[in-house]
Nucleic acid binder design. Structure first.
Lengths: 161, 161
DNA sequence: GGAGTATACTTGCTTTTGCAAGCATCTATC
DNA sequence: GATAGATGCTTGCAAAAGCAAGTATACTCC
């Protein structure tokens, strides 16, 4: 965005910074792919579909607005709209008009959707443990969570390093 | 893959594990998007195009086989093939037949490609520092790199947690 | 209470990418 | 040295997702 002009010198990464960044860059590509593959193998849903189902299952009355789903997942509304469509065609969710706002729509988790989650949730959890959490043993998880949680935050990272 | 059947009980994540995973899951979605946006704003190339250009610039004679590029980037050969096509259309790389193997093709970085990198590299570096590395201050970077570097490795993570 | 604007969602279009099939070339075996 | 299979790359096709334009409903100010 409004950073400086892009050609001035920037200190390159030091050795240990370089290694940390390379490891992370690789993880950014590989982890989503592996989790997606595991989930697909276990129950035939994509990560975004799973995300919608889980969020609905945790919501009061198992229902949420489209925009709420989009916000939580950092996905566009159009993506959510299509994912909910796809889930509705398979009977895993139903669409309903929002009673308090006629412009709004709700996605409602069906019993079939909940049943599918009973397979998908443990499968995904096992996958996350095996591919990710397992490797964090010995680290200070609170410190890790705080650091990673600050990545790409609008407020914090505009300032100079 | 060949894991157990997916319905057996799995211990849910503990509080600090949960927070670490949520932070990471968000980063997995948001970081690539932000870096991509910065890079595009700075010089109009995508991350995968940038990745190809950087790897070529570091290679002997500024040239690499398609398959070598694909391996390094954990991308499919078809994706690389198209990206190199796109770069070639813009004059940033050239294609050449591999002299030692008539089946193979090389992507060769042009002077124009190198010039573009002189803008793209510092822009990307600044972006990585601002959005990611900046937030790792205070952590043991070697330990972080080793842990993250083990994520989604085929060998390690088949075993039980 | 009506006109104009804002909001919620949907849909058409485009881009990116993986998979699978196809083609060219190389290698091994006879 | 000819034939069979393996390998390297390209290309057709389909899925996923963002942007922008369209539609329907709500809100605001007169």
């Amino acid at each position: 965005m409004g950073q400086s002009n892009g050609t001035e010198a920037v200190r390159p990464l030091r050795g240990e910074e370089e290694r940390a960044w390379r490891a992370l860059a690789r993880a950014l590509v590989v982890v989503p792919r592996v989790l997606e593959a595991d989930l697909h193998a276990a129950c035939g849903v994509t990560m975004t579909e799973y995300f919608v189902l889980v969020n609905l299952s945790e919501a009061p009355e198992r229902r949420l607005r489209m925009s709420e789903l989009a916000d939580r997942g950092a996905m566009s509304l159009s993506a959510i709209s299509r994912v909910v469509d796809a889930l509705a065609r398979r009977g895993l969710v139903e669409r309903a008009r929002c009673p308090s706002d006629g412009r709004g729509f709700l996605a409602v988790l069906t019993d079939a959707g909940l049943t599918l989650l009973e397979v998908a949730y443990p499968a995904h959890l096992r996958s996350v443990r095996a591919h990710v959490m397992r490797h964090l043993q010995g680290l200070d998880l609170e410190q890790f969570a705080q650091a990673v949680g600050r990545f790409a935050r609008f407020d914090e990272d505009a300032a100079r390093p």
